[in-house]
Design a protein around this nucleic acid. Sequence first.
RNA 1: GGAGAGGUGAGUGAGUGGCUGAAACUAACGGUUUGCUAAACCGUCGUACUGGGAAACUGGUACCGGGGGUUCGAAUCCCCCCCUCUCCGCCA
Length: 424
Amino acid sequence: MLTVNYIRDNKEEVLKKLARKNFNRHELIDTIIILDDRRKEIQFKADSLQADMNNISKEIGQLIQQGKKEEANQAKERTTKLKEEIRLFGEEMDEVSRKLQETLVLVPNVPHDSVPTGKTAADNLVVREGGKKPVLPADAMPHWDLGTKYDFLDFELGNKLTGAGFPVYKGKGARLQRALISFFLDEAIRAGYREYLPPLMVNEDSGFGTGQLPDKEGQMYHATLDNLYLIPTAEVPVTNIFRDVILTAEELPIKCTAYTPCFRREAGSYGKDVRGLNRVHQFDKVEIVQIVHPDTSYATLEDMVNHVEGLVQKLELPYRIVKLCGGDMSFTSALTYDFEVYAAAQQKWLEVSSVSNFESFQANRLKCRFKEPGDKKTKLVHTLNGSALALPRIVASLLENNQTPKGIKIPATLVPYTGFEWLD
RNA sequence: GGAGAGGUGAGUGAGUGGCUGAAACUAACGGUUUGCUAAACCGUCGUACUGGGAAACUGGUACCGGGGGUUCGAAUCCCCCCCUCUCCGCCA
């Protein structure tokens, strides 16, 4: 969420920039400022009254020690009215703070100046393309059929065990998953990221910290008995490591990576577009997260994009990098690059990574701050994250593009990890 | 899950109703001293909100695991929850 002071000091600019994210609720911005004014007013009045109260209490203490019981009792009577006033202010304070908070979380992050204007995915800007689309014979199979043909990927079995969207990988299919995870982690570690293996369930505080709660509650599986949530991405536990933390400038940047399964309820669409591995409820992903100084966050974003690009190149997949337009960007992001790989049998671009700079939007919610040497005040860090990478669609593309009459050819980079060259 | 002990600032740890935003020590930072290192000594050493001020700075309020309560007044008393440790039970 944005800070009130930022909104206050840059009201017109904020409105103008948010318009590019199709956010035009000017009244929310006004409400925020009005509520914040009121909050300050109450704070001042209530604090003054509390100061009076504290002074009287001190007096009473002294009077009692001096044995002046009568005067002490008189002083006590004076507190009754004060106490009531303080209580009323306290109630209003709770109310105003709650409303302010509620309103504040409705305002999306402001987009970076370089974000293309546009409403939908069609307005996104392709910044780079790489790799070569294979030419497949007419009878080329989509990955779900290949899975059946070679018996390494089983949706029916997942259906039996759990339900739709929970595929089972078998034999070399399972091995391929493990290979990709190891490859991605090794690459991240080589690029200076520290590996974490976080819990796969998080509490409410963490859900709030990264913005899944309270609004997007339906995206996560909820274990109600223990009030824990299955993580939809490693971003949640990993970023929350830095919740309520004050860092020093020397500690930045902090680079973390984590492999986790991800669980998404995805109540959304079914049908042709989401067949096979294109959209599932549980999948594996390696995530990279950086906590950085505000001055360097955009350079960091480019670094992370380059890192992800290196991965798809090494996997020899045809890919393109897309800069999201204002209308297609997430609520929390200031600038996002999506990576898409081409699945040649489906003849579709599939999104496999989303690399974003959140600037201080997420940090404000997390209360992750840092101090410059010699500076007494804390400042919000910038946070970034990206998938590096999400497996299912990578696998889909890999399988479809590399199919041959004698099996599916594994890219050379992966062979040391899989231990086999052909998936057959 | 049962029984007991406990959760205080970066760390150790004192504090059982007012003189405590919190002793003392350690660490850290700045300085004095010193041929160098060490030691010694002095000072600084939490966060958030808020009033004043251009700022340096300064006044106020809150915070001693979290939430509620008692009281004129709570780190301190009461209730609920969370967590840690020891013992027992169960278990990969």
